[in-house]
Amino acid sequence: MKIVKEALAGTLESSDLLVKVSPGPGTGLEVVISSEVMQQFGLQIDHVVRDTLARLGVTAGLVVVEDKGALDCAIRARVQTAVMRGAEAQTIDWSALS
């Protein structure tokens, strides 16, 4: 999927996260993560975010994550939603989400 516009998903509430996607200034993929549990889980969160983006076929854009201690399933869900909103996707490939 190609991110064609700025989009947002999720919240800043505890156990959730806010994900912002945008086409981005450069040509590559930039992921910026900020988390309350960066010390222990920063790498894990980064891995989940990048893995989710890869499954969706996102190779370019800026993805900013404000994590509030969310479970991996919530991280996946919010990244997927933000990308779909930013790609203006009309159809959903469910197999790319599981």
Binding site: E6, A7, L8, G10, T11, L12, E13, S14, L18, K20, S22, K68
Partner: peptide, 21 residues
């Protein structure tokens, strides 16, 4: 409590809806 975080989430969502990211 959690109210302030929800408030900020809502205002950010509203701003996006209105074209301000």
């Amino acid at each position: 409590g959690s109210l302030s975080l929800t408030l900020l989430s809502e205002i950010v969502h509203l701003a996006y809806e209105r074209g301000h990211s």
